[in-house]
């Protein structure tokens, strides 16, 4: 029991540390004095860099990291599938479709995240319809999600093969994940969205625990499994949709972090959700700092860093750990 709080505390401190590291080293390193003057002043270049570029961006990476990790961890539980991640149920395909349409129509900075969100929701809505047609269960949900994801990716490819190259380029860059572009207000809205989403999921932690035993057992234990599944599916989708809208498609966070945390602190969802949120935030915050710093002033797509760093780390961890149980 003590151990649990200790780990939580450790993650909180680590998050604060990564915030500071990212603030100081993300890009060209700034000295401590520069940091202080920048934080206090309200004009000048230091001020602009710290308050208008670095802090919003770090906040965004923290929100998105937490959102993706939690939504992945809940989906892995309720779908009872270790390969589940936030994008399994077709959101990425729908969002990519929305972005492609936005780029084609020439809708600018604000239209792009909105259409990405709308595309993601459209795909979620269709999955929901397909799954509701039969008994709302895990298998119909997964199948519906995978099919729609294919459908939308094919539509994106269709548009790619007939659209102009410069427009394709914009969409491709978006698909690789990008934390630099988002507007400050948008980051705030997205942050609130993700925060309340995680809060609701946390309230339902006992139901998720029971659902991981299987739908039948959940029904016997007095849970309306179809109804709970629907609710959890919609909430995770909204969280993921908000993340995708502001940052594109950043892979690996939602898949890797929950496994890692589950292995460290056990499968109980009350702790798993909070710890995953913190770990996801730390991971993406540091990954983005690396993406900005490696070949400064040129940036790498953050999805590349999460993929490479996360993948290597995960393999290493998989080989090191003695036992490996998913559920």
């Amino acid at each position: 029991m003590k151990n649990k709080y200790f780990f939580f505390l450790f993650l909180v401190i680590a998050l604060a540390a990564s915030f500071i590291i990212s603030l100081i080293f993300g890009g060209t390193p700034i000295s401590f004095n520069e940091l202080l003057t920048g934080l206090k002043s309200s004009t000048g270049i230091e001020y602009a860099i710290i308050w208008k570029i670095r802090i919003p961006r770090i906040m965004l990476s923290i929100f998105v990291g937490a959102g993706l990790a939690v939504s992945g961890c809940v989906l892995q539980g309720i779908l009872r599938n270790p390969l589940a991640e936030p994008y399994t149920l077709g959101i990425s395909g729908g969002a990519a479709f929305g972005v492609t349409v936005a780029v084609l129509l020439g809708i600018g900075s604000l239209g792009l995240p909105l259409l990405a969100f709308a595309g993601g929701l459209l795909s979620v809505f269709l999955v929901y319809l397909i799954a509701s047609k039969k008994y709302f269960s895990v298998s119909t949900l997964i199948l519906g999600g995978v099919i729609l994801s294919f459908l939308f990716s094919s539509m994106v490819m269709l548009i790619f093969s007939i659209a102009r190259t410069d427009k394709i380029h914009t969409t491709l860059l978006w698909l690789m994940g990008d934390l630099s572009g988002a507007d400050t207000n948008l980051i705030l809205i997205c942050g609130l969205f993700i925060f309340f989403g995680i809060l609701i999921l946390f309230v339902f932690n006992r139901e998720i625990d029971i659902l991981t035993l299987g739908e039948e057992k959940a029904v016997f234990l007095g849970i309306d499994s179809a109804k709970t599944l629907k609710l959890l599916f919609v909430i995770t989708s909204l969280i993921t949709g908000a993340c995708v809208a502001v940052s594109g498609i950043i892979g690996f966070v939602g898949l890797l972090i929950p496994h890692f945390i589950r292995n460290l602190t056990g499968p109980k969802y009350s702790t798993l959700i909070i710890n995953s949120a913190l770990a996801g935030a730390i991971f993406l915050c540091l990954a983005d700092a690396i993406a900005r710093t490696v070949i400064y002033p040129v940036e790498l797509p953050v999805g590349v860093i999460t993929g490479i760093a996360g993948g290597l780390f995960f393999i290493f961890y998989l080989l090191k750990s003695k036992e490996w149980e998913i559920f």
Binding site: A48, I49, I53, R54, S180, R292, Y296, P297, V298, E299
Partner: peptide
């Protein structure tokens, strides 16, 4: 290249 907005400001 993809350019860091911060580099432009600096």
């Amino acid at each position: 290249p993809r350019y860091n907005p911060e580099a432009v400001i600096r």
